[in-house]
Design a protein around this nucleic acid. Structure first.
Lengths: 102, 102
DNA sequence: TTGCTTGTTCGAAAATTTTCGAAGCATTAT
DNA sequence: ATAATGCTTCGAAAATTTTCGAACAAGCAA
């Protein structure tokens, strides 16, 4: 699979974004990507089975929240911060600045 | 039932707030309350059976997003905007300003 | 080629969520 | 006291979500 689909944010409903971010695991992924920048799937120590992680990556990608870049056998994940800021100004900043608990 | 429980926002995890807001029906309720101010349950024309509406009101109340005031046989709903702004600055503004689709 | 690394897809179980009819419960009106 | 109003709770069906083992696929290395 060479090219993965990344939706245009314009077409993503707010409820889809909020749903994708409403899971503690996915919120954690987003925070790690914001803090450390682009990271490979394996670099995120989430304490979950690989298929489960893969599922969450897919939800985030299809919601337009993360971009996935193929590099050899690895997938490099990054936050689509600029796209998100344009579509929903202030949303990600508010979410990323929030204090724990998730 | 005289006094309904309203959680202290400080104790509500972000994921709970986002989950409550991730349903299009509940997003619609929040938008109506923001636009029209305090409204009674019956005043929101949601096109859903009453038990279903009641369910969504409960989810929003238990997430700390709306306040419910008992007035006779009616329940008056309002957005806990100030509390939300304090706990998650900028979050509700970003959500309320978002363009359709929900 | 063979094997190793990295991650996805398949299939399925368990949990959660959304929905609504029927019944119930305060409160107000008659 | 009886009935009407406004909303909630109960019980249950249907849909969705979360999770993971097993199998699979693509790239890299020996």
């Amino acid at each position: 699979m060479r090219n993965l689909h990344h939706p245009t944010l314009k077409n993503v409903p707010l409820s889809v974004i909020l749903h994708a971010l409403s899971d503690p695991v996915r919120l954690q992924i987003v925070r790690v990507l914001d803090k450390h920048g682009e990271s490979c799937c394996g670099g995120l120590e989430l304490g979950l089975a690989k298929p489960t992680q893969s599922h969450h990556f897919k939800v985030l990608r299809e919601a337009g929240i993360i971009a996935v870049r193929v590099e050899g056998t690895q997938r490099c994940l990054s936050l689509r911060k600029a796209d998100l800021d344009k579509r929903f100004p202030g949303l990600m900043d508010a979410i990323l600045k929030a204090k724990s608990p998730l």
